[in-house]
């Protein structure tokens, strides 16, 4: 085929990539504070979307409120997940904790199905209007919202972790738990914050995505897996890496589907995940790892 599709493929890839990046940022938050790969991250995204839909179509709140409220709600869920399942196991092996998050994600998904049923739900776009034409690509206004949210969230979190006391304490817990404890940081509280923030980031992703993706109880898993690819590709723990990884996975999918085969679209992402793990396990933005700690 000719090159006329290319601008659209790139636009689609970047939009999708921004979503994966948002999910990846959530993975990073928990990982960099606790070393845990939080399999419930996708469920946080799903909950964000479902809460937004509920607030808007069932409680008839104004759209702006319906989009912001879920963030607080899912932060609470995140904190709750930590308080009830991770904290009691604070002395357990990492693998146990990872399995706990798997259990939590299964339970959350099941609960969501009980509450909302198996159907998908619509949410109106944040700003009305026709799609914009740009360099041969048609871009949905909502896509711009997604990209803006991803960039803003990534930047805000990086600032938070680097420049605030709270954030630096969080990083300290990750780098050396005992040392952090010795200088008076309350490690468990930091971990709880990490989970809460991950919940918040997930909810942002969920509600900004809802008008495009029509959320249902089971969207979390697919998004978590792609977001996870993005996080590993960029180098898990690095927010810049997450953004880069997300966009790369998005582009890979879109170009792969555009030029090779739409049937194997998802396989491309997972194949790259495998390749990265086999060849360059610390990711593209080679962040120093601290996996030997535990």
């Amino acid at each position: 085929m000719d090159g006329s599709g290319l601008p659209q493929f790139i636009a689609t890839g970047i939009t999708q990539g921004a979503i994966y990046a948002l999910v990846a940022v959530g993975f990073n938050l928990v990982y960099s504070a606790t070393g845990i790969i939080n399999f419930a991250q996708g469920e946080f995204v799903m909950l964000g979307g479902m809460f937004a839909v509920t607030c808007y179509s069932m409680l008839h709140l104004p759209l702006a409120l319906a989009v912001v409220l879920p963030i607080a709600a899912v932060m609470l869920v995140g904190a709750g997940v930590h308080y009830f399942t991770i904290r009691p196991l604070r002395r357990a092996h990492l693998l146990t904790l990872i399995m706990v998050t798997v259990g939590v994600s299964v339970a959350l998904r099941g609960l969501a199905k009980v509450v909302w049923g198996a159907d998908a739900y619509p949410l109106p776009p944040f700003s009305a209007g026709e799609s914009l034409s740009l360099a041969g690509a048609n871009i949905n206004p909502q896509s711009l919202w997604v990209m803006a949210c991803a960039a803003a969230t990534g930047a805000a979190l990086t600032l938070f972790l680097r420049c605030t006391l709270q954030g630096r304490a969080m990083v300290a817990c990750a780098l050396n738990r005992r040392a952090a404890q010795l200088v008076g940081i309350r490690v468990e509280r930091m971990h709880m914050w990490a989970f809460a923030l991950a919940g918040g980031v997930g909810a942002i992703a969920g509600s900004v995505l809802a008008p495009i993706a029509l959320p249902s109880y089971d969207v979390g898993l697919a998004l978590a897996l792609k977001g996870f690819c993005a996080a590993v590709l960029g180098g898990i723990g690095s927010n810049a890496g997450a953004l880069l990884g997300g966009v790369l996975v998005g582009l890979l999918e879109s170009l792969g589907a555009g030029y090779v085969s739409s049937g194997y679209k998802d396989a491309f992402a997972f194949f790259v995940l495998l390749l990265v793990l086999l060849l360059r396990p610390s990711g593209l933005l080679n962040v120093p790892t601290r996996r030997e700690e535990r």
Binding site: D2, G5, D218, G258, K265
Partner: peptide
């Protein structure tokens, strides 16, 4: 083709359109 859980089909449609 697209996956049941896909959130965006513009790539496939662009290809079709061409």
């Amino acid at each position: 083709t697209f996956e049941s859980k896909d959130t965006d089909m513009t790539t496939q449609l662009t290809k079709a359109k061409a």
